[in-house]
Write a protein that binds this DNA or RNA. Structure first.
Lengths: 245, 245
DNA sequence: GCCGATTTGTCCGTATGTATC
DNA sequence: CGATACATACGGACAAATCGG
């Protein structure tokens, strides 16, 4: 129980902004004011604010203050800067979701697969295909590869539930970093088999490499999304200094 | 000239990682070692490392150290967490690019446009359509709206060059935050007029709202990309604590 | 299992620089 | 110019996680 001090401050400010307690387009109370209110050091207030900047709630400018730039976003959006499982996203958006495993096998990474996924050639991998249904409609086809040596007693049954829950709660694994790429690709035979694409002939494809706390790449997943409901959000900050690095 | 101390440290570590001086999958020297080498405080080393974490070069774990997870990425990729203009991206990837302005007008935000863009209804806006060509091939169709009152003497001629350069260097405006959404949409008549979509009937669409240092939304741009060369990258970190906020 | 050394995470207080008003 | 506000940097202290003996 670290009982971190900046977290409740971050959450308090966040909910004040969401509830309109701080007017949009105007400045929040200064850091000095806030540290008085929350009874903490200036560093701690600044950490809380840094989180709000990252989330796109506020932006800071030296000499002026911290400006509220909050705008409520589309609720149906997929991942935004955080690592979220499909189940977590569904819970957040309040939609009913199920998962169906349509393929499960064991393979080794040949050179082509290794180059595509980032695993070393020869690595033994579980390969699964899963279909995610939102409100009963098949929307996402996942191709996932997991390192076998990270999850010795993994089975097809477990794949039907939340794999992240299994990894984190049962195996005690900690998931840290995920590198993602979004592209758009033509639908292939498999996509048309499992998804109802309507009049789309393309999909939104999110490829992600996930690392555990040992720094080993243990998962590569390619998520092929029905375009109509796909939405990927991000906040970016312009850092003048680091550009010409 | 602030002569920030953490920046050269960040850059030094970054180039060491890129050049393979630190082995991939292994730990970097500890913070205590690095602060001795660079002659700075622990906080300063930690800021440099935080930048590397954000960029997906390393990940940290308490009690272990800082692990190198660098993998060289596809060079042809579009923006990743930073705000980069089209010209800057082209320069980075070493590709020749040009821009053509195909529409320029002045309008006011009607309710529908206001809802879509985030501007207040009635706001006077410049509306431009620009086609970006990479190596001579039209690849991106941009629909941009700029607040008129932020750039009084803006003209169609200026739009052909780098608008960001004009805003930052000539007007002294500072661009801070950009909120982006990636979606996939059907191609419309205009897309087919200006872009050669080949056998694609969809586009990758990046919608972005950009704020200046006063906290005012001054630009809304919808970039419609030819799918074949579109690539959007991001690094995400799983933050256990902030999930249940 | 325990203990101690190492390493990162959090927090505090202070000082100084720099931009804004 | 002075007052205010955020940005950067330093030093110290303790907590929490990891690892080896």
């Amino acid at each position: 129980m670290p009982a971190q001090k900046y977290l409740p401050i971050y959450q308090a400010l966040k909910s004040r902004i969401e509830s309109g307690q701080y007017p949009v387009g105007q400045l929040l109370p200064s850091e000095n004011t806030l540290l008085g209110e929350f009874g903490c050091s200036r560093n701690t207030v600044r950490r809380a604010i840094a989180g709000l900047v990252r989330d796109g709630y506020v932006q800071t400018s030296q000499g002026r203050g911290v400006c509220n730039i909050y705008q409520p976003l589309e609720p149906s959006s997929y991942s935004m800067g955080t690592i979220e499982s499909f189940a977590e996203t569904s819970r957040r958006t309040g939609q009913h979701s199920t998962t169906r495993v349509v393929h499960f096998s064991l393979c080794a990474a040949d050179p082509a697969l290794a180059r595509r996924t980032g695993f070393a050639p020869g690595t033994e991998l579980f390969y699964l295909q899963r279909v995610h249904l939102v409100e009963g409609v098949p929307r996402i086809l996942n191709h996932s590869y997991f390192r076998r040596d990270c999850m010795p007693d993994f089975t097809a049954d477990r794949a039907a539930g939340s794999i992240y829950r299994y990894l984190e709660e049962e195996l005690g694994m900690t998931i840290v970093t995920s590198k993602r790429t979004v592209t758009v690709e033509h639908a292939d035979e498999l996509d048309r088999t499992w998804l109802d694409l309507g009049d789309y002939d393309c999909l939104a494809v999110v490829s992600s490499q996930t690392y555990n706390s040992d720094g080993v790449l243990f998962e590569y997943t390619q998520s092929r999304h029905y375009p109509g409901i796909f939405r990927f959000q991000e906040n970016a900050v312009r850092s003048h200094r680091e550009h010409r690095g």
